[in-house]
Design a protein around this nucleic acid. Structure first.
Lengths: 149, 149
DNA sequence: CATAAATAAGACAAAATAGTCTTTAAACTA
DNA sequence: TAGTTTAAAGACTATTTTGTCTTATTTATG
């Protein structure tokens, strides 16, 4: 798989939040229920995004989590790097440590090209743009077909 | 990561074999030594490729493994599908079960495009072609810089 | 036929990823 | 201030992936 499960959960939660009115906290319980993601697992993932400044959380009644200003401008790429690390965009396709333009593996050139197209895909739009289009077009964000954001 | 470790090991071993004279068996011990891959682990991976008809093995002294006729014509794509399964080329980037052109997720269209470019990259050349170029250009196939195929 | 060399098969262990549960801390509300 | 609601933190479990080890089977050779 291209992205870990943690990463996919993080992206979906972020898009969910991006589709909501600005400035409002949403509880992790609500998010995990709507997107059908394990509550505690999601908590840990979003804590990572909060630690990286992409989200902000608030405790207590009516607390929850929301995108930070930085998070609103972020792209999927930023989230992927925060959760899965930068490896996908830096490492050799064959996992060879010293691989690079100096001492390339057989896949190096074509992988660099493909890797950049993945990166471009993830950098193309901001979370807000994707969420806006997603809401408008009724794209799916959950396994449940009845979900609507 | 794009490919599992098993898959990467399988690709490297296959390219190694593809670079050797046709029709000769090479022992798993020799391959695992040269490529610095765990012997027993490599054995299991190549058994999978043998089961799928991409390689042929022979027991006993001077036995070993070699590419089958099918394997010689194969591309990296065939090996990836054999080892990691077809998921990378079929599944939704967000892991949503019903995602498709009917009910797409927000990434669907761009992911399909990117996915196809990955597929094309892996289908572009046969193992023999890649190995030939790799040998000629002294590309690296092992972590050890002293390796040469 | 006995021994050695090789793959096959499967049990086992370690590490990474995924997921669950409990306790703590913070913030609101009555 | 007491109780409730929320996230934070961390222990724990389960699953998958990765890696190791032992035993069996096949084949060649002396």
């Amino acid at each position: 798989m291209l992205l870990s499960k943690s990463c996919v959960y993080g992206l979906r939660a972020a898009l969910y939040l991006a589709s909501k009115k600005n400035g409002e906290y949403h509880s992790l319980k609500a998010i995990s229920d709507e997107l059908d993601i394990s509550f505690h697992f999601l908590t840990k993932i979003l804590q990572q995004l909060t630690a990286d400044g992409l989200m902000e959380s608030y405790k207590g009644p009516n607390g929850g989590i929301k995108l930070s200003p930085k998070g609103k401008k972020a792209t999927l790429y930023d989230l992927v790097v925060s959760i899965d690390g930068p490896g996908l965009f830096t490492q050799c396709a064959l996992g060879l440590p010293g691989c690079g333009s100096q001492e390339p593996c057989p896949l190096h050139d074509s992988w660099v090209e493909t890797r950049e197209s993945i990166e471009q895909m993830l950098k193309k739009s901001s979370l807000l743009e994707i969420a806006e289009e997603g809401k408008e077009m009724h794209y799916r964000l959950a396994a449940d077909v009845n979900f609507s954001w």
